[in-house]
Design a protein around this nucleic acid. Structure first.
Lengths: 136, 136
DNA sequence: CTTGACCTTCCAGCGACTGGAAGCCTTATG
DNA sequence: CATAAGGCTTCCAGTCGCTGGAAGGTCAAG
């Protein structure tokens, strides 16, 4: 399979697939003409990567997960550890964003949004208390 | 004021302050020795920036907000537009993350996380349906 | 034979910093 | 006066995960 077809089937841009090869996530064979020649296994790996990335796993997480996937004797504990760590990061991010949303939503409600210059949003940015940025 | 003191007071790393000058968000004066010499106004601007950034506004949003803030005759509508747009992006992000969280939480719950090789997380990554990535 | 779609590599850029090197300036101490 | 520590300066490179574009090779159809 050429990269175009694989791109289509895996739902990943060709650029991304080349990038994944560059960083060693996949290693497709090469045709005599220099074109990448993807096997079913490569396609499978790319689909795996696509799903893991869609769940927000980092590239390094993906590398780990792929190698765990290929190691049929691995223990599920390690996979769970990675997934749980990622889940915790996602939950932290959601909480941070929810805080931003609440503050912003409040300000947007307060602001008349008309042609008068008085604006509570700017007032708050100029003088308001700044929320903790720890760990953002 | 030297950069160290401003950094302390504004709660921003010195590196970040230099970066903000580089991209034209602030323009502190210079001492004869070449050191930056920050005014109260500069400090105020940096505090403003810190708060806006903590609310997740992009640098370009911040640039707009600062110029609107300085323009005492501006209409609040434009500020509200920027804030509301940002709020919408935050809400979209939260929704996306919540979807990831739900899928992941489900998988993590399913996974025994013990020394057996059977792992529903990897199974799902290998074969499961991939959630839409549109607009992520 | 030419067109156009596909493939290749390489280099640069995104956002918003962050780290580090090399070197100047200031202040306190011996 | 020398020296050492700390703060300041600039500049370059790296982060993450791609993405865009240029320059050029390859292939199938008309």
């Amino acid at each position: 399979m050429n990269i175009g077809e694989v791109s289509e089937q895996a739902g990943l841009p060709a650029k991304t697939i080349r990038y994944y090869e560059e960083i060693g996530l996949i290693a497709p064979a090469r045709d005599v003409n220099g074109y990448r020649d993807f096997s079913e296994g490569d396609l499978h790996s790319l689909a795996f990567l696509g799903r893991a990335r869609a769940l927000g796993f980092s590239i390094e997480d993906c590398r780990m997960l792929m190698s765990l996937y290929r190691d049929s004797s691995r223990e599920s504990a390690e996979v769970k550890r990675i997934a749980a760590g990622h889940l915790a990061r996602i939950e932290k991010k959601i909480a941070d964003l929810a805080e931003m949303r609440d503050t912003l939503a409040h300000l947007v409600r307060e602001c008349a949004g008309d042609n008068r210059p008085d604006c509570p949003i700017l007032k708050s940015l100029a003088a308001g208390a700044r929320p903790d940025r720890d760990g953002l």
